[in-house]
Write a protein that binds this DNA or RNA. Structure first.
Lengths: 196, 196, 196, 196
DNA sequence: AATGAATGAGCCTTCATTCAT
DNA sequence: AATGAATGAAGGCTCATTCAT
């Protein structure tokens, strides 16, 4: 059999190897050779398929974001009420598959990379805006516009904040507690609303 | 002019140049030569005083953390009640001097660096624990222990979350609004407490 | 021209260039760049094949020792009696190919390098022990054990002594005379034995 | 008291520190700073007194040679017969003070340095010629000219050979045995002479 | 007499990228 | 499709040496 249509296979292998290497090193300071080696090919081939290291990173980032997106979508399948949908969104970031050491390292590094890579920044904002849109969509059904916006911002900040703290610091609560604290945030707003 | 006692002067200059370069590049991928040049000296002298690039980074990080610490302390001077003190702590991270592009870049990069640098991680945790301790100290005067802990965690996450989002994403509220949202978080808890 | 299987070619070229450079400089203070340049390649390629300067030196030393070993073996082919064999061994160090300026410089420098490089020392001792074993093997057929050992030690010292003196000092006899003096040393012992 | 006439004191301290550092490192790859530090002064002062690293090495070498020369002279004081004198000369190289690790390292390194340093070579030859002259002077009283020359060469080679082997190789006899082997060499010649 | 300050030059090593096969 | 071969460019670090005080 001719070795045809290898491109998607090779690319996928490189992306996964890239995540693995970033997770292993904790940095984006990984060499193309390391990535290619882990993916079982020469670095020359990696360049052949991706053109440059930059492109490997970008593809990897898109991959990481897609996985996250799919996690959210899967959860939303079973959510009926706005509250349930919000809960799914907030919980997704703390699902086990998003909490693997490698994925966490990838996320954090890509976050910071956005500081100097315009394209990375653009990708990041696509994801951020979608998260925000989703949240707002449901919050608007519960709260007045201004409140909905504030809560959406608060929730997004809590998610990012806990995510980064979990990765880097001691004395941070576990996934279950984190989810509870974020859920509580929403509850507090609901309580205020009920009181008014 | 006598050229004596230059060590502290040079070190300070290097630290500031390091912050500037990180801010400029948006990465820790800055060369010792760049830093030294900006500080007005040869890279050899930089090594003479700090021994290695790693040490320059570490000293810079300590400097950034000290500045933050001083900002908090300065604010606490005029705070009387626990609530005022908490407000000072939460606001400090969003003071103008902590929001300069360069300082933000430094913070974010050092955060991620903690993923693979044990010493960076240690330093970061010292700062994180101090923040937590301060918050808890005051929250305990207002809330029962369990609640105090949850609120402290929530506030810390909000701070980190907003900080990182401000740096990297569009559509994030300004400093004033952020402070308000965080303040609101505390208010929500106070309201619940008043209701019980 | 296919450019495949270059590794052994390149390595060999580097080893020879290394010998040449050491001979030219008279020191091990030669740069990888110099060696690589003389071998007709970039220093990066030299590192690609050898990994480090240390490894280039070690490979070069093994090469020099192998050449010496082959010189001895070639000579032993035609030696029948123990005396002939001993003569071959003592003469080999003063064969023309071991007396080229470059080879001499390499030997001397590697000798001294053994003072602080454990691996160099190990290699050197492998060679020294083999020489000693060979000598003893034949001397035992002529002399009683104790005498054989003393003569072997004496011969080895004479070889090293004359070799180093030839390289560094004026007023040292030529190769032919040196061989004669060493041969005489053995003759003196034979005479004493005959007299007893 | 004014700090006057420090020059000889400082120079002496540097020379001894140089020997110590060479012994410690096993190489001439020692820095001026290391030497100066061990001598209790700044590297700038070392340059002030010696002008260059090269000069420090040269002075150190002269010092090492002077020590050796004094050892020989001291021994010759009590030697009456030519044979006794020869014995003193051959033994001196294996006296305990010439066998300290540091002194050995210095000798070997300076030997090799002669390969590319003309001045080092010159110094070395002064010492070698003096040794040869002394030996010959006494050997001529015992042997005919041609024999005297051969024996002198042989003895000199044995001395150098054993000295270098002792420093670098395992399985080399101790000082006492070495002296005996060299003495034996002379005895063998005396026996042949007696037989003729 | 003595030294901290300062640097230019250089070395080993790494790496993304290209090319010929 | 795939890779070994190859390199230019750069970076961290060292060090002998000089200079001002």
């Amino acid at each position: 059999m001719p070795k045809i249509g290898m491109e998607p296979v090779r690319k996928q292998a490189l992306i996964e190897a890239c995540i693995a290497e970033i997770g292993h090193a904790g940095t984006l300071d990984v060499t193309v050779s390391q990535i290619a080696k882990r993916a079982g090919m020469s670095s020359a081939l990696a360049h052949h398929y991706f053109g440059s290291k930059e492109q490997i990173f970008l593809a990897t980032m898109r991959h990481v974001m897609r996985i996250y997106g799919e996690t959210v979508l899967r959860g939303l399948k079973n959510a009926r009420t706005p509250l349930e949908r919000i809960r799914v969104i907030t919980d997704s970031s703390f699902d086990s598959n998003q909490f693997e050491r490698e994925i966490v390292a990838a996320w954090l590094n890509f976050y910071v990379r956005a500081l100097h890579s315009a394209e990375t920044r653009r990708l990041l904002n696509v994801y951020a805006r979608r998260l925000q849109t989703n949240l707002l969509h449901d919050l608007r059904k519960i709260f007045p516009e201004a409140t909905a916006i504030e809560v959406a911002q608060g929730i997004a900040a809590l998610i990012d904040g806990f995510y980064i703290r979990s990765a880097l610091q001691d004395q941070v609560p576990g996934r279950v507690t984190i989810k509870a604290i974020i859920a509580d945030y929403l509850t507090l707003w609901l309580e205020r609303k009920a009181r008014d």
